[in-house]
Design a protein around this nucleic acid. Sequence first.
DNA 1: AACCTGATCGGAAGCGCTTTCATGACTGGC
DNA 2: GCCAGTCATGAAAGCGCTTCCGATCAGGTT
Lengths: 360, 360
Amino acid sequence: MRLKHAKRRTARAAPGPGRNASIQDVAASANVSIATVSRVLNTPDLVAADTAERVRRAIDQLNFRPNRFAQGLMTRRSRILGVGVPDLHGEFYSALLRGADDEARRRGYHLLVTSGVGGKSSDGHMGAMLGLVDGVALMITEPNEKLLEVTRRSDLPIVLLDAEVNGAVRDTILVDHEAGAAEAAQHLLKTVEPSRCFFVGGPRENFDTARRAKAFADAVRMHIAARTPPRAGDTTVLGPDQIVYGDYSVNWGGIWARDCIACGRLEGAGVLAGNDEIAYGIMHAALDAGLSVPGDVKIIGFDDTRLCSLVRPTLSTVRVPLQDIGAAAVSALIRRVETPDAEPQRIRLKTTLINRESGG
Amino acid sequence: MRLKHAKRRTARAAPGPGRNASIQDVAASANVSIATVSRVLNTPDLVAADTAERVRRAIDQLNFRPNRFAQGLMTRRSRILGVGVPDLHGEFYSALLRGADDEARRRGYHLLVTSGVGGKSSDGHMGAMLGLVDGVALMITEPNEKLLEVTRRSDLPIVLLDAEVNGAVRDTILVDHEAGAAEAAQHLLKTVEPSRCFFVGGPRENFDTARRAKAFADAVRMHIAARTPPRAGDTTVLGPDQIVYGDYSVNWGGIWARDCIACGRLEGAGVLAGNDEIAYGIMHAALDAGLSVPGDVKIIGFDDTRLCSLVRPTLSTVRVPLQDIGAAAVSALIRRVETPDAEPQRIRLKTTLINRESGG
DNA sequence: AACCTGATCGGAAGCGCTTTCATGACTGGC
DNA sequence: GCCAGTCATGAAAGCGCTTCCGATCAGGTT
């Protein structure tokens, strides 16, 4: 037997398995209206204690969870935050993500992660993401007009990680690469001649490398200018080979070091690397060539990834608080989402020189 | 002048800035009904070519993007996949996530990442996640009844990473740890006496460590049983100290190695470590003690993280295709989401012994 | 001429929720 | 005993979309 054209207007099947309980079911079960159920959830103060209790029991019993889509449709909030990073490879982003995720969960938000930000095919994907999230934390490491344009025109809350966007006043999490690079330079300059100090960076266009390079150069120049008495031949112009660029890889560090060794210039040098991997590459090439670290050459890395304490000799490095960056980004983003009119914030996180073995 | 109590029933403000264009706006602009607009988006075949074209123009012009919440409310799909891992720390999960993200974006899905799966406070967070995603890829490394119970009772599509759940027939991505461990053992046994072969694992409860340990022991026993002629004193019982457990850290590897050295038992040994970090710890302690690797002691790691090719001597290891695991998980999950009635799948991924320096 | 068929489209229901507005029951002050 | 002022609650209007159903029309079939 089968009902033919059964009237289905308002009748609804019992919330058995296969269908989650809806607010309707709860309301029916607690003998109140759906409005009251909603109030119990969102504004409990507006409902009488005993009613609320009854509703809560029904909720538990039916295992009711508000449908997030319906909620989102009304409130225009999803409690999801987008996180866009250029890449998911390696220690670096994994630490960042970890900080972000911890903070997000603490605040009852979820993280929608997407990598390849700035890549070619990322536009559509980003677009789709914008419709789902309450805000976006974006990490951009190289200039990318298209992406910045999107962020500028979007009215979605955005915080920028470690990148300044000229023209737009936005929440921004900054890392004080300058102080870190300067501190590292000063440390090297204690025992190394300014002319023997090198900065071996990542890609020239990379924001971080650029800032670290500039601060390094400034520190070296300042050191020269300040020392008394001046020495013969002192010049505040750095040699063109003292600041070089490549990429963020062990390989590039090795290449540079071997070149340098070939010219006999690595011995007695002090090197600040653009990141830990480069530093490791340099150190390794030096050791392979029979140089001692830090005896013959002093090396300082950047970021303080796990690598630093694993390798021997251990790597001195400039610690960048990656987890804190992630956490701060999420925190700032939530603040903007929840209080859209708040003043834009610029949070600046400190770096720390970590003296281990390689830096002397 | 201001309109007082203007009638607002059906009138709606123009879709200026501050409000995104809705399907209504598109319909009005293209002079069709919203049903037609929807069809253009979802079932273009049902719309006349010229009408569709007109609608598409309106969509472009108004920069219309369907509201994902409204869509989700109707379709019960979000095109978001949940990924739950125990931890976000380190190379391991970062590689996995990368594979997952690549595959997801290729298929037009997004990833909602959550760590701390299996942790104490993760329940509520997981619960909230379940309402948002089309399915979940779960990585569990240790027994966790509560979590498994949740997965069992949920009708949400789930794929399990590298964990078997007895009783439930589920899509599962498995890694052939057994083959990898056996291959590594056999490699060591070529030059090392069975009684001098060790497995230094991570936590005893950890699924992976348990499986690797068992396969290692089996391989050693089988080697003893198979060799002809049998030697005096051959026994297929491994010494209790040949399979040991600790945690997945460099530190633990170092501790074990130093203990072993103290008893004079490391020289001439062959060691399979539970992961690369342990292997590195062992290798380092050995080198520090003046032993040569692989001359005096042969060491093989597990996972093939970046560390292996960075350190010197380079680490032989059993490669686990982390990125492939992530990609396979997402792929299987999408399959289940889109064809819920498909047969449950068990995908088994191969490991590969990577011979570098430390393994001899 | 009456009928059927398929292609195309609009009307309208309804997904599950939040929120406004109206209602009714009490309360205290006169 | 009556009116203003709470307080607790319900009815109902949508949020923006998908999809079922039916209307219309052109063109072919009997």
